[in-house]
Design a protein around this nucleic acid. Structure first.
Lengths: 332, 332
DNA sequence: CCGAGGTGTGACTACGTAGTCAGGCTCTGA
DNA sequence: TCAGAGCCTGACTACGTAGTCACACCTCGG
């Protein structure tokens, strides 16, 4: 910046003014500075700026690092939202199955100097609660235990609503009850979807079958499908994500059960391939961009108004997408 | 740090020494400093450190921001590799279909002060060449045009090898030739896979049918499938990713063609669901973690030895995974 | 008993930027 | 013509850390 100043025959401070678009600079000086900056390939130093202002304009995200469609979509949506809000974007993944993974990841983001943190796939890790003095944390779905004093925000992923819609749909097709292949119990998203399922059964007075826990993978869905095929009376299955739904359908098919003629299946996520499976998969769709925008709005507001209470606002609902796989129960 | 020093009754410099694990500090002083640091919740300031050292220990990645399995897997693998190498990780997505997207994204990373840049899904954008004075750039697959003077590195994604293996497999099943549903022509990955397909046909002396260009989505695969079903003589299709392969299979099925009995299909990526589709999908698998580790190795080496020429090393090969969908041609 | 070499410590400084403040200039209205 | 009110400009400084250097002290071999 000194060199630019020298070349433009102004002071370093004036260059700073031009670069930051401050007023009170003559057009002539501004012109000379801009020309000099371009000529020297000047790029303001982020470190110096951050040092002076005490913040990086950076948002950090803790992700599990799995290429699952939902989490990956949300991650990219968050990047777009952060970028639109003028923030840069750091990612840390927790090593799979590592205890204290989230707390460690949060720690690493704090060391990087982020101004806000997002837990895109909150997991209940028991005691290991993230602690972030001064830096607000946003959780999607629900939040893990948080150390008191930490500024935690929550925005819904509407897993309950989605599970409710999926299960209601199956019940409305005439099934007497609906089986559930859940995600891993530590994920809040899995718990939410299960809660929605349970609610729908209760409001319909349907019996609640034992729930099978998968790990989001098609192979766990496949195992569940084989097991459900051996279980008498199974006519409708709600899987907590599309990958498991694919596995379930495969397991049922190998056991000789046709979908949707003999068993109806509903998934969750609306992966792009869902409409092109055999049969096309009825599933629950989420608007990740809206979720990310809404969540980041909360977070940025909290970052810029440290004292203000977290505003409560509506969040984008999950939406059922009806296709063939969730058809009516078999005629006896 | 001054406060820690005061509390520990040492100089600020000694605190710095302890924090950075430098030698020549008595156990006694180190102990006092560590205790004081813990008590005050001290966290070294990244900005000041970066300002002094002229680098952030940060790697930036340009991603297209699509939740496609391959790109998302590579992104997370890169994060793991960067974290293992002691670097933090920034992501910028290019807005879909935006011209000059990559150059703009690179610019934004440079403004953040990253020490190295990865283009995880290089795209040929014609004139808009990324320009990065001083900061090395790594491209996966092949590289877009790069302004002279930019330190560009390339690591293979072995798309050619994968396309070759997929096509050879189909030919070895007895098909006279293989149709190809390609990815968007601007993607180097799509070009590589197509080149592998073409090579395999040439070495077998098989005729080269016209290639259909998709956009990686199942729906584009579906369109291609419908079109191929109307084309006489189609018995084998190589799709440039699994999503399109799913669409192709759906299109063929709707036209009454059975896979693999009447048409064999091979995909690319080995998405988790591939093994659980109907029929299970023969596809090409890549070791993203190995690719990322290898690529980051190159990049970090170049970052830390600016003058050294880029070392050339072997890269992890793509591997064919044989399942049912790529079966033999129909008996006449 | 002395010098050489190693260890432990702290004062001082620079890194590149933006906030503060002071001062010179121009323009306006009396 | 002059005071007052802007506008434009630059000197100075602080931000938090690590590199450099100086120095006191200790140990050891000759």
């Amino acid at each position: 910046m000194r060199e630019v100043a020298r070349l433009a025959r102004v002071s370093q401070k004036t260059v700073s003014r031009v670069v930051n678009g401050e007023p009170h600079v003559s057009d002539q000086a501004r012109d000379r500075v801009l020309r000099a900056a371009r000529e020297l390939g000047f790029r303001p130093n982020t470190a110096a700026r951050a040092l002076l202002q005490g913040r990086f304009r950076r948002i950090g995200v803790v992700s599990l690092g799995t290429a699952l469609y939902g989490p990956a979509s949300l991650l990219f949506a968050l990047e777009r939202a952060a970028s639109a809000a003028g923030y840069s974007f750091s990612v840390v993944t927790t090593l799979n199955g590592r205890p204290a993974g989230i707390a460690e990841a949060v720690e690493s983001l704090l060391n990087q100097g982020v101004d806000g943190i997002v837990l895109s796939e909150p997991i209940d890790e028991g005691e290991a609660a993230p602690l972030a003095p001064g830096v607000p944390i946003l959780g999607f779905g629900r939040m893990p235990a948080v150390t008191p004093g930490t500024r935690a925000l929550v925005t819904g992923a509407d897993g309950v609503g989605g599970g409710l819609a999926a299960t209601r749909h199956l019940l409305s097709q005439g099934h007497t009850t609906v089986w559930h292949v859940a995600g891993p119990g530590r994920w809040w998203a899995a718990r939410d979807r299960m809660e929605g399922w349970r609610k729908a059964l209760q409001e319909a007075g349907a019996p609640e079958p034992e729930c099978i826990e998968g790990d989001w993978s098609p192979s766990s869905g496949y195992e569940a499908g084989l097991r459900l095929a051996r279980t008498p009376g199974v006519t409708a299955v709600f899987a907590a994500n599309d990958d498991m739904a694919i596995g379930v359908m495969r397991g049922l098919a190998e056991a000789g059960l046709a979908v949707p003629e003999q068993v109806s299946v509903v998934g969750y996520d609306d992966i792009p391939a869902a409409a092109y499976l055999s049969p096309p998969l009825t599933t629950v769709s989420q608007d990740f961009d809206a979720m990310a925008a809404h969540g980041l709005d909360l977070l940025v507001h909290q970052m810029e108004n440290p004292e203000a209470p977290a505003p409560i606002r509506g969040e984008p609902p999950a939406r059922l997408v009806v296709r063939r796989s969730g058809g009516p129960p078999p005629r006896p």
